[in-house]
Design a protein around this nucleic acid. Structure first.
Length: 598
RNA sequence: GGUUCCGUAGCUCAACUGGAUAGAGCAACUGCCUUCUAAGCAGUAGGUUGAAGGUUCGAGUCCUUCCGGAAUCACCA
């Protein structure tokens, strides 16, 4: 609810008292934008008020409308359609609003640090496989939510936890030892994460062969799977790693180093970054103290075999293991420890937001409940930013079936498509190769980011690799294109010697489309507010598309440079400024850059 | 089987959290570049919101029961 709505709600409350002698709380009033097929800008839904007025919806609306026009100078006219009271606001109101904010690039944004410190975790890959399409959705989503929280005034710490430890990385290590012949990223020219991924696949192949062999020799499948020699080797590597065997730790460091270098290159392309990295190898032993403390306070209990559990049946959840009978930690133990560590790493941290796929909803429900039971302050404010899978036409991505969409490949393809498209249109032939390369990435990656972010996070979404991502219609490039047009038009005005700093706007120049466009753009602060509340960048994406679409329509039949009437021209310059700023800001919150030309 | 989520135009997605005649894009068809960038604009066509009940002034949205799909219910991470 913006300032205007609040003002109108107040007036309506007074009107209810004046007309019907009824006390109505402002929250009970429903104000909304008037649908475009009706006259007016704001609509008061009068159905809920009929029990106060004891009159029909039409009579109620008419009475309130009469009163508002007579007593609120912002209300110009009214119209009652069924149970809806449509109010027309005086044009000077919109004009003043526009004049105030049109040149303010941070319109709708709050001062950084005016809201509590929060942490956003995203990405958090395993170090045995390269990043894929699912990671792209995760990273763009997490990064965008972080940007949006920042825009709303929060101090945001972006982190990821890197799963660098465990049997999975040992598998790659074994395979590299056996089949690698000392291959390195430098020597082979292969990206580090790809190289390690290659040996992970090699492991899997060798493992399957061995299992098949054992089965052929008469062993049952279950035993074969647990006794294949190469798996035993990997397990022995894990043991040696845990005991700190120098050679093993060394190899582990080397191979993880390759992966980090590869990931780093991909993050750079993606345009995401992190303020702090957590490594599972540092944190996997954490949490045991918390378990001990919880045992003491009676939050947890110990079974006869020595394993430690928590009973969450009073919360509608099950019993959950926290420590194995041999005293070793599980995933949950580690997450408890890491969560608590982060509170102490960042004093004043209000909450943590975990960008993790929806298959882990149960895990996070349990984690937050445990934190609450352990007495962590504001534990219930933590949030699992859960998102749906990116599905392919043939179903889920499966590395074994080779249907994984590799992040690097997809990014490259997007830039390539942008190149083809731009070359065909031939509008940027005079740019240098370097400028072109930047442009193709801005446009191509913009298309990809917008594609992944315009969908509500909670929903699973479809990606068809054969039908490449669009650059036309409801897409990132469409929005970029309109920004470029607007910016270019403003530049031409300046070149023509027109003063583009607007200090006065005549309220009588607008047509109804323009008034509507101004109102739509003025919604921006409330869009950010809702996007923050719901951790949902798609609201930003959809708003800015709708606004851009409306702008594009307006652009088509409103001249600026050629407009002889200076009052009209200046008003249009201010409007264009306002919308261009907003497009740039909103797209920035999605991690999408604006090109200068396209 | 228990729990959670989902089902909207041929396809991909919206719908201000219960409001008015359910909207965009893609694909198809028609027009519009001598005019600030046509990656654009205007138009045509496309819907029993999975089904059936219920709640109320009013339901894509809420409740119930079905049908169909996904995830989860590990001493994996």
């Amino acid at each position: 609810m913006d300032a205007l709505d609040q003002r109108l709600a107040q007036s309506a409350v007074t009107a209810c008292t004046a007309c019907f002698g009824a006390q109505v709380a402002p929250e009970q009033l429903q104000l909304q934008q008037t649908r475009k097929e009706f006259e007016g800008e704001r609509t008061l839904v009068v159905f809920p008020l009929t029990r106060h007025s004891k009159k029909s919806p039409e009579e109620t609306g008419t009475a309130l409308g009469e009163w508002l026009v007579a007593n609120d100078e912002l209300v110009n006219a009214y119209q009652v359609v069924k149970g809806f009271l449509n109010l027309t606001i005086v044009p000077s109101y919109w004009t003043e609003q526009l004049l105030q904010v049109h040149d303010n690039e941070s319109f709708g944004l709050q001062i950084k640090g005016s809201k509590p410190k929060v942490m956003v975790e995203y990405s958090s890959p395993n170090t045995n496989k390269p990043l894929h399409l699912g990671h792209l959705r995760n990273n763009f989503l997490g990064y965008s939510v972080a940007r949006i929280l920042e825009a709303a005034g929060h101090e945001v710490i972006k982190v990821q936890i890197i799963n660098d430890r465990g049997i999975h990385i040992c598998k790659s290590m074994v395979a590299w030892q056996k089949f690698g012949n000392g291959e390195t990223p430098d020597a082979s020219g292969m990206k580090g994460d790809k190289l390690v991924g290659k040996y992970y696949v090699a492991f899997d192949r060798a493992y399957k062969e061995q299992v098949a062999e054992l089965v052929a020799k008469g062993m049952n499948e279950k035993d074969a799977k647990s006794q294949a020699p190469i798996l035993l080797e990997a397990q022995s590597l894990l043991n040696q790693w845990e005991q700190g065997d120098a050679a093993v730790v060394d190899l582990w460091k080397t191979m993880n180093g390759w992966v980090y270098e590869g990931f780093g290159a991909t993050y750079l392309e993606m345009g995401v970054d992190f303020d702090k990295l957590y490594y599972e190898s540092d944190t996997y032993l954490l949490g045991k103290n918390q378990v001990a403390a919880g045992l003491e306070s009676g939050v947890f209990f110990k079974k006869e075999d020595g394993s430690v559990w928590i009973d969450l049946s009073d919360e509608g959840l099950d019993e959950k293991l926290l420590l194995r009978k041999d005293g070793t930690a599980v995933y949950m133990t580690q997450d408890i420890g890491t969560a608590i560590l982060r509170y102490s790493d960042f004093p004043g941290l209000e909450r943590q937001i975990y960008t993790v796929g929806n298959e882990q909803e149960y895990h996070f429900k349990v984690l937050f409940t445990i934190l609450k039971k352990l007495g962590v302050k504001d534990a219930e404010k933590n949030y699992h930013l859960s998102y749906g899978m990116v599905e392919l036409p043939e179903g889920k991505m499966k590395s074994r079936e080779g249907t994984v969409v590799d992040a690097d490949d997809l990014l490259e393809e997007m830039a390539g498509t942008a190149r083809e498209m731009a070359t065909e249109l031939g509008k940027i032939d005079d740019l240098t190769e370097g400028e072109k390369a930047t442009l193709f990435k801005q446009v191509g990656y913009g298309a990809l980011k917008y594609f992944l972010l315009k969908v509500s996070p909670t929903k699973s979404m479809m990606f068809d690799p054969k039908a490449s991502i669009d650059f036309i219609g409801n897409t990132g490039p469409f929005i970029q294109f309109n920004y470029v047009r607007a910016a270019s038009m403003l530049a031409k005005c300046a070149d023509a010697g027109i003063n583009t700093t607007i200090t006065h706007i005549d309220a009588s120049v607008w047509d109804t489309d323009e008034l509507r466009l101004i109102q739509q753009a003025l919604l921006w602060p409330s869009i950010i507010e809702t996007a923050v509340e719901q951790y949902d960048p798609s609201l930003v994406a959809n708003h800015i598309y709708d606004l851009t679409k409306a702008f594009s329509r307006w652009y088509q039949d409103h001249q600026v440079l050629g407009e002889k009437n200076e009052s009209i021209r200046d008003a249009r310059i201010a409007l264009t400024h306002f919308i261009a700023h907003q497009i740039k800001t909103a797209m920035g919150l999605l991690g999408i850059e604006m090109p200068k030309r396209m």
